[in-house]
Lab assay of single mutants.
Amino acid sequence: RERTTFTRSQLEELEALFAKTQYPDVYAREEVALKINLPESRVQVWFKNRRAKCRQ
């Protein structure tokens, strides 16, 4: 699998949801995934990595 490159608009959507909740449920992830045209699994991994970045 190729590394996913997020567009600015995708990142804005993801960061907006992250500001609301660092642990979105599957419904919130699927909703944003549809909105930004990415698989839910990519959204899930983005949140995992974003939380790790936050802890550093």
Rank of each mutant, 00 (worst) to 15 (best):
R29F: 05
T21K: 06
L17R: 01
T4C: 04
R3S: 13
K48Y: 09
N37Y: 03
L34H: 12
L14R: 01
P39V: 06
N37V: 03
S9I: 10
A16D: 05
E12C: 08
R29H: 02
A33T: 02
K35G: 03
K53H: 04
Q10W: 02
L38C: 14
W46M: 01
A33D: 00
A16N: 10
V43P: 00
K48Q: 09
A33V: 00
E2C: 02
Q22F: 04
N49M: 05
T5C: 15
V32E: 03
E15V: 01
V32L: 12
R8F: 12
W46P: 00
Y23G: 02
Y23S: 08
Q44Y: 11
Q56F: 11
T7N: 07
C54L: 13
Q44W: 07
Q44C: 14
L34D: 08
E12W: 07
V43W: 02
R1E: 05
E12S: 14
A16P: 01
E40M: 13
Y23I: 05
R1G: 09
K48V: 08
T21E: 11
T7H: 06
L14W: 00
Q56L: 04
W46R: 01
S9C: 10
R42H: 15
P24G: 00
E2P: 03
P39R: 05
R51Q: 08
A16V: 09
A28N: 06
R29A: 06
R1S: 10
E40W: 03
A19G: 09
Q10L: 01
T5W: 06
D25P: 07
E12T: 13
E2V: 06
N49S: 08
V32C: 11
D25T: 12
V26R: 15
R29L: 10
Y23P: 00
V32K: 00
V45I: 13
N49L: 08
K53T: 11
A19L: 11
T21P: 01
A19Y: 06
N37F: 03
A28R: 09
R50K: 10
F47W: 02
R42W: 11
T21M: 04
K20T: 12
Q10V: 03
W46Y: 04
F47Y: 03
E2R: 04
K53W: 05
I36H: 03
R55A: 08
Q44A: 14
W46V: 01
Q56A: 15
A16Q: 06
T5G: 10
F6K: 04
I36R: 01
A19W: 06
E13A: 13
F6Q: 04
T21A: 07
R8Q: 11
E13N: 07
V45R: 05
K48M: 07
V43H: 03
L11K: 10
K35M: 06
A16R: 13
E15G: 03
T5K: 13
Y27V: 14
C54G: 15
T4I: 12
R1F: 15
L11M: 09
I36S: 05
C54A: 13
R55I: 14
V32R: 00
T4R: 07
Y27M: 14
E2L: 05
K35E: 01
R29Q: 05
C54E: 15
R55D: 09
E12I: 11
S41D: 14
C54W: 12
T21Y: 04
V43L: 04
A28H: 11
E12V: 14
E12Q: 11
A52H: 10
L17K: 04
S9G: 10
R29S: 09
L17G: 01
Q56G: 10
F47P: 02
N37A: 11
R8M: 13
V43K: 01
E40H: 06
A52C: 09
L17T: 06
L17W: 03
D25W: 00
P39W: 01
P24M: 01
E12K: 11
P24R: 01
E15K: 03
L11P: 00
Y23R: 06
A28I: 08
N37Q: 06
E15S: 03
E31K: 15
E12L: 09
L14Q: 01
L38P: 00
L38S: 08
F47H: 00
L11D: 10
V43F: 02
R8H: 14
P24T: 01
E31I: 07
S41K: 10
T7E: 12
Q10F: 02
T7K: 06
S9K: 15
V26P: 09
R51I: 04
E13M: 12
K48N: 11
L14V: 01
R51C: 03
N37L: 06
A52L: 13
P24W: 01
K53M: 15
A28Y: 04
V26D: 12
Y23Q: 08
W46F: 06
V43S: 01
Q44D: 09
A16K: 07
V32Q: 02
S9W: 06
L34Q: 15
T7Y: 03
L14Y: 03
Y27W: 11
P39I: 06
R55Q: 07
A19M: 08
A33Y: 00
L11I: 15
D25V: 00
Q44K: 11
C54M: 09
Y27S: 15
N37G: 14
Y27K: 15
A33K: 01
A28C: 10
V26F: 10
W46L: 00
K53A: 10
R42T: 11
T4K: 14
K48G: 07
Q56H: 12
R51E: 02
R1Y: 02
R50H: 06
F47N: 00
R50T: 04
V26N: 06
F6G: 04
E31T: 14
L11N: 06
P24D: 01
R3W: 06
A16G: 13
K35L: 05
K20L: 09
R29V: 14
P24V: 00
F47G: 01
I36Y: 05
K20N: 04
K20D: 03
R50S: 06
A19D: 13
R42M: 15
W46N: 00
Q44G: 10
Q10Y: 02
E40T: 09
R1M: 10
F6C: 07
Q10E: 10
Q44I: 08
P39T: 13
Q56E: 14
Y27G: 13
R42G: 09
E12R: 13
K35H: 04
L11T: 10
R29C: 09
L38H: 10
L14D: 00
R3E: 08
R8S: 15
R55L: 12
A19H: 05
F6E: 09
N37W: 03
E12N: 07
E31L: 11
W46D: 00
L14C: 02
A33E: 00
D25A: 06
L14T: 00
L34C: 11
T4V: 13
S41N: 06
A28F: 03
F47E: 00
Q22C: 04
R50V: 01
Q44M: 08
Y27C: 14
R50L: 01
L17P: 00
K35D: 01
F6N: 05
K20H: 12
N49H: 10
T21H: 05
Q22D: 04
I36G: 03
R55N: 15
Q56I: 04
S41M: 12
R55Y: 07
E12F: 11
R29T: 07
N49V: 06
Q56W: 02
A19E: 10
W46I: 03
K53R: 14
F6M: 10
T5D: 14
N49A: 09
T5M: 10
E40S: 09
A28S: 10
N49C: 08
W46G: 01
S41R: 11
C54V: 13
E13G: 06
L34S: 13
I36V: 07
Q22T: 05
Q56R: 12
L14G: 01
V45L: 10
R29P: 01
L17M: 07
T5V: 09
E15A: 03
V32S: 02
